[in-house]
Amino acid sequence: MTDIANPPAASVDETPFRRFVADFCESRVAIAGLVGFIAVLLVAVFAPLISPTDPYDLMQVDVLDSRQPPGAKRYTDGMVYWLGTDGQGRDMLSGIFYGLRTSLFVGAMSGFAAMLIGMTVGLLAAYFGGRTDTVIMRLVDLQLSFPTVLVALMLLAALGQGVGKIIIALIVVQWAYYARTIRGTALVERRKEYMEAARGLALGHPSLLFRHLLPNCLPPLIVVGTVQVAHAIALEATLSFLGLGLPPTEPSLGLLIANGFDYLLSGRYWISFYPGVALLITIVCINLVGDQVRDVLNPRLRR
């Protein structure tokens, strides 16, 4: 049954990266996800430049403008609040732009740091094996047997609020996923012949670990990474919503949504709705990209 057809031979100038790009582009949905994600990223980076108002500048906020529905005009100069205003009269659109900035920053920073830590620890566990491996993996198992949201809640309750603190909490709940993933791959890769060959050259531990072993363990790590960043952004929003994440001085999307909760029952949906949509678009785009990356990098689905 495997004897149906062989794919046409790869062209000579095909590099793994080009092949990856070509395979990735096969899914139009995934491209849309990537484009969407880049758009969100640009909005977050340039938020101060493209926002109609600065939601943190108290001079620009007027209580008379509070709880305006989408499309209402500012009573001073007639500027349009495209997505309405919140309970304090801040422009929702600007709030969302700034909120995206915070959310993406927290998600990316924690994801990156957790990846670095998890990668190093997992690689060491697989490479040295024995007791190092046992101790590290016991710790990972213990950590993973507890739901991330609970661990993060506890940490934040202990640490208090703040951007730095929530990043720490998110690193703590994420590193174990990376560690487990890379250890699994590294255990397989370690036994392959190129590692034998590299060891035969009497290279030092650092060179073996980072020049030879690590690059071959990256694909699954990238897959876990995209999932984890999406997860981190959602978790940060959840924690902020519960009032244990970011302080009100640095409103992330979660906090914006929480602020709208009180107005929801009186039908002022936009205060919670639009920040949620922004959050949703961000996470959907990351997940779409992640899904396709996983399919492309999965050797078992190789067509």
Binding site: D3, I4, N6
Partner: peptide, 8 residues
């Protein structure tokens, strides 16, 4: 040989 179509 494999690929010759005998299984199909």
């Amino acid at each position: 040989e494999s690929g010759s179509g005998k299984t199909v």
